[in-house]
Amino acid sequence: MTRILFAAAAATLMCAPVHAQEASATARMAGADGADNGTVTFTQTKSGVLHIVVEMTNLAPGSHGLHIHETGACDAAGGFKSAGGHYAGGKEHGINNANGPHPGDLPNVHVGGNGVLKVEFFATQLSLGEGGANPLLDSDGSAVILHAEPDDYASDPAGHAGNRVACGVVEQPS
């Protein structure tokens, strides 16, 4: 009888629904001087929406453009140009552009006088894996760029957001 109960319990466990852990990735942000500026964390939710959490420090106070760029490379010596342009997904730049926005266009962020930035938002036009729309973890990767100035939400291709002041490659945890 004990064997039958054990076999039944094992079969029940094998058939029970498994709740998969949500996929996540992180971009470790660094300035042009290589100093650590914090992280941007991405979590693919069960609804398909990408949850983005930005936690950065040692930044210049004020408004800054924040974008996802098309290539997972952050060469500080080249002004982070190695990250390429915005993740465009066949669109033009800016929420105020009739042919936009890029999937990589995120809202401006605002850094307080203490140099700290903490913000979270949702992105419906991005995903982490190859099976989703505009995947960040595709064959050439993606990067997060913090710009010196705010995005004007209209000018193609980059919203006149100024120099790239911090960069992080989007990577899955090992």
Score class of each variant (00 low, 15 high):
residue 84 G to D: 02
residue 85 G to M: 13
residue 86 H to M: 02
residue 86 H to W: 04
residue 87 Y to V: 04
residue 88 A to N: 07
residue 88 A to H: 00
residue 88 A to D: 13
residue 88 A to M: 00
residue 89 G to F: 03
residue 89 G to L: 00
residue 90 G to S: 05
residue 91 K to W: 01
residue 91 K to V: 01
residue 92 E to C: 10
residue 92 E to W: 10
residue 92 E to M: 15
residue 93 H to F: 14
residue 94 G to R: 09
residue 94 G to N: 08
residue 94 G to F: 11
residue 94 G to K: 07
residue 94 G to I: 12
residue 95 I to T: 11
residue 95 I to E: 04
residue 95 I to L: 10
residue 96 N to W: 10
residue 96 N to D: 09
residue 96 N to P: 00
residue 96 N to I: 07
residue 96 N to Q: 10
residue 96 N to S: 10
residue 97 N to K: 02
residue 97 N to C: 02
residue 98 A to S: 11
residue 98 A to W: 01
residue 99 N to D: 09
residue 99 N to E: 06
residue 100 G to E: 07
residue 100 G to A: 12
residue 100 G to R: 00
residue 100 G to C: 09
residue 102 H to T: 05
residue 102 H to M: 02
residue 102 H to L: 07
residue 103 P to S: 07
residue 103 P to K: 05
residue 104 G to F: 04
residue 104 G to Y: 06
residue 105 D to Q: 12
residue 105 D to H: 06
residue 105 D to P: 03
residue 105 D to K: 01
residue 106 L to D: 08
residue 106 L to H: 07
residue 106 L to V: 05
residue 107 P to N: 06
residue 107 P to S: 09
residue 107 P to R: 06
residue 107 P to M: 07
residue 108 N to R: 03
residue 108 N to T: 12
residue 108 N to D: 13
residue 109 V to E: 03
residue 110 H to K: 12
residue 111 V to N: 08
residue 112 G to S: 06
residue 112 G to Y: 00
residue 114 N to S: 13
residue 115 G to K: 00
residue 115 G to P: 04
residue 115 G to N: 05
residue 115 G to Y: 01
residue 116 V to R: 06
residue 117 L to A: 11
residue 117 L to W: 01
residue 117 L to K: 02
residue 118 K to C: 05
residue 118 K to M: 14
residue 118 K to H: 15
residue 119 V to R: 14
residue 120 E to A: 14
residue 120 E to L: 05
residue 120 E to P: 00
residue 121 F to S: 09
residue 122 F to D: 15
residue 122 F to M: 14
residue 124 T to L: 07
residue 126 L to W: 05
residue 126 L to K: 13
residue 127 S to G: 15
residue 128 L to F: 07
residue 129 G to L: 13
residue 129 G to M: 11
residue 129 G to Q: 13
residue 129 G to K: 11
residue 131 G to N: 10
residue 132 G to D: 08
residue 133 A to V: 14
residue 133 A to E: 14
residue 133 A to N: 06
residue 134 N to E: 10
residue 134 N to C: 11
residue 135 P to K: 01
residue 135 P to I: 10
residue 135 P to H: 05
residue 136 L to Y: 09
residue 136 L to G: 06
residue 137 L to K: 00
residue 137 L to S: 06
residue 138 D to F: 03
residue 138 D to M: 03
residue 138 D to P: 02
